[in-house]
């Protein structure tokens, strides 16, 4: 197939190109998903607009408040190896390190991953559990959006065609908070998750759960926030029995597909098992 490949040198130029090409253009970051779809013949843009020649989109740094800002063009590998990211949350690093192979992680970007909105990807549930937001630029200016609400369906986001994710902002983690990312791979180590669970939990001084956020991957059209499980734990002492009972509620919150990585029944049950395991790990 033939297409025109554009390497703008500023974000404004990129936005202008996207506006000009409309539906005929496709934005590319690392290209790991885009190139695959193009090679399969499923995606046939007339114009590909690359972000790789735009400076300033790939930094990873702690914010003065103690949060973390990740440039949208930072690679998975860069996050995985970043001291700033590890200092912020080792579980976040785990999530990025869980993606595919090192060759893919050297190429795939944080922003591209979010824009692709594959519900089986590793970073989105962890970013959502950490309450991350993205900054989006368009010809109309800048806006922010929660990672949790970015994806609206399989491979579909709320972004409009001329919007570009420029960075991901993770808020400071309150003292007493623990985080974990668990990925269930029943067949081979190199695969998409059958189910993944990202969770953060903060204890109050009286050893009850002050706050908890649980987000699952691969068991719905988007990442799934397990709100009923969270509600069952908030304010309570997380005893093994309570965790078990709370985790069981996740079965009704997920909406998995029957596919090559497991039947819907199996995934539903595995969502329970891994939610319980994640909570056990956070309260151990």
């Amino acid at each position: 197939m033939s297409y025109d490949y554009h390497e703008p040198h500023s974000l404004d130029d990129a936005l202008a190109l996207l506006t000009r090409f409309g539906d005929d253009g496709h934005l590319m970051a690392g290209g790991t998903a885009t190139v695959l779809l193009m090679r399969q013949g499923l995606l046939r843009p007339a114009h590909v607009v690359s972000l790789r020649t735009i400076d300033g989109l790939s930094g990873i740094a702690r914010t003065p408040q103690g949060g973390l800002r990740i440039g949208a063009m930072a690679t998975h590998r860069a996050v995985e190896r970043s001291d700033a990211a590890r200092g912020y949350s080792p579980a976040l690093v785990d999530a990025f390190a869980s993606v595919a192979t090192v060759r893919i992680r050297n190429q795939a970007t944080v922003g591209g991953n979010l824009a692709h909105a594959d519900p089986a990807q590793d970073p989105p549930p962890m970013l959502a559990a950490l309450n991350a937001t993205i900054t989006v630029r368009s010809p109309r200016g800048e806006r922010t959006e929660a990672v949790e609400t970015l994806a609206v369906d399989h491979f579909t986001t709320s972004l409009s065609h001329d919007e570009v994710i420029t960075s991901v902002l993770l808020p400071p983690i309150l003292p007493g908070t623990r985080e974990v990312y668990l990925k269930f791979l029943p067949q081979t180590a190199d695969d998409y998750a059958t189910v993944s669970v990202a969770a953060t939990l903060r204890f109050a001084d009286d050893a009850t759960v002050a706050d908890v956020r649980i987000v699952l991957g691969a068991v719905g059209p988007t990442t799934i926030r397990a709100k009923r499980v969270e509600d069952a734990l908030r304010g309570a002492r997380p005893t093994p029995e309570r965790i078990r009972d709370a985790a069981a509620l996740v079965r009704d919150e997920v909406d998995p597909l029957d596919d090559l990585r497991g039947s819907a029944d199996y995934k539903r049950e595995m969502a329970r098992v891994w939610t319980e395991r994640a909570l056990a790990a956070l309260t151990r």
């Binding site: 399969q40 499923l42 597909l257 090559l260």
Partner: peptide, 13 residues
């Protein structure tokens, strides 16, 4: 080739 894009997702759609 349409069928090569994840049968499970197509089915859901």
């Amino acid at each position: 080739r349409i069928g090569e894009f994840g049968q499970a997702v197509i089915k859901r759609k």
